[in-house]
């Protein structure tokens, strides 16, 4: 421990240089993480907005007074389901009102209608953990069989597309992530190799005087971890600059959260330590 910090002090120039090189390669990883994080945030937000419309049979919605009680019952029934988070009742009149508003200028076309053709409906929001294709379909299937239900609409096409887009993105992202991480490890291992080669003589001497491998490697591993951490912090600063530039073009962009930053720094610390250890093993026949 004491050894490694005094070594860091003794080799300021080499340490500084390798931290800079490492942080530049880590920047690629950081940008990748930022992009992934934002895309997933976007997916998550889209998922949040997913709602299921349950349209009621017209005979039920026509006779208002009689059916209020039953509407209440159905409302309660839907709410009692485990997957359901919220249920909002939209009456025929409300539906008409919304439709009018959506039509805007063209709303006069509705004046020719004698009766309100729109059905009453429940707007169901599922709990976040159930907002995926399989569960939404399960829910829709269960509700459609009820006799008070005319139709269930949950934007089938959109959900299916959304599911395949997120899946495709996930695969591409994993492959890209793997490439970025492997290349980071490669660059870090090479950077560490420079440090090790620059101290090859010292290591030989330590071996001559009977230092165990642990005595020799420990300072390098601790130093690698320390450099990894420093490089991570430096790359985060650079990432923030990149973020500020991109934010001008994409206002919805968000920076990595605190927990992700911590995880990232921790990963880099590990990468530094592992890189050092692997490099030592390879180049010094320890």
């Amino acid at each position: 421990m004491q050894e490694s910090f005094s070594t860091l002090g003794r080799h300021k120039a080499v340490t500084f240089l390798s931290v800079v090189i490492m942080s530049l390669s880590l920047l690629v990883l950081a940008v990748f993480l930022l992009a992934t994080d934002n895309v997933f945030t976007f997916f998550e937000r889209t998922r949040q907005e997913m709602t299921v419309f349950v349209y009621l049979s017209d005979d039920l919605s026509l006779s208002d007074e009689v059916s209020w009680a039953t509407v209440e019952d159905h409302h309660k029934w839907l709410l009692s389901m485990e997957m359901v988070e919220a249920v909002e009742f939209i009456s025929k009149d409300q539906a008409m009102e919304e439709f009018r508003n959506e039509l805007g200028e063209e709303r006069s076309v509705l004046d020719v209608l004698e009766a309100n053709p729109l059905p009453a409906s429940f707007r169901v929001t599922l709990k976040p953990e159930y907002r995926d294709k399989v569960n939404i379909e399960r829910f829709a299937g269960a509700v459609t069989t009820m006799d008070f239900v005319e139709e269930v609409n949950y934007g089938r096409d959109f959900i299916e597309q959304f599911a395949s887009v997120t899946r495709a993105f996930l695969y591409v992202d994993l492959v890209l992530g793997l490439i970025v991480i492997v290349s980071s490890i490669f660059i870090i291992a090479n950077t560490v190799r420079l440090t090790i080669l620059s101290r090859r003589k010292s290591i030989e001497i330590l071996k001559l005087v009977g230092a165990t491998n642990r005595f020799i490697t420990a300072p390098f591993v601790i130093e690698g971890a320390f450099q990894g951490g420093l490089a991570a912090l430096l790359s985060l600063v650079l990432l923030f600059l990149v973020f500020l530039v991109l934010k001008g073009m994409l206002p919805d962009l968000t920076f990595l959260g605190l927990s992700k930053i911590l995880l990232y720094v921790l990963t880099c610390v590990m990468l530094g330590a592992i890189g050092s250890f692997a490099s030592l093993r390879r180049h010094l026949k320890l």
């Binding site: 003794r10 080799h11 003589k201 010292s202 030989e204 001497i205 071996k207 001559l208 005087v209 009977g210 230092a211 165990t212 491998n213």
Partner: peptide
């Protein structure tokens, strides 16, 4: 074993033509 070599070296003193000192200490 590899590990034993360190302990052997502690029983030996070795000097060389080029001294092999740690320049940074």
């Amino acid at each position: 074993k590899r590990h034993d070599i360190s302990y052997l070296r502690r029983k030996l003193g070795i000097i060389f033509q080029d001294f092999r000192l740690l320049e940074d200490r």
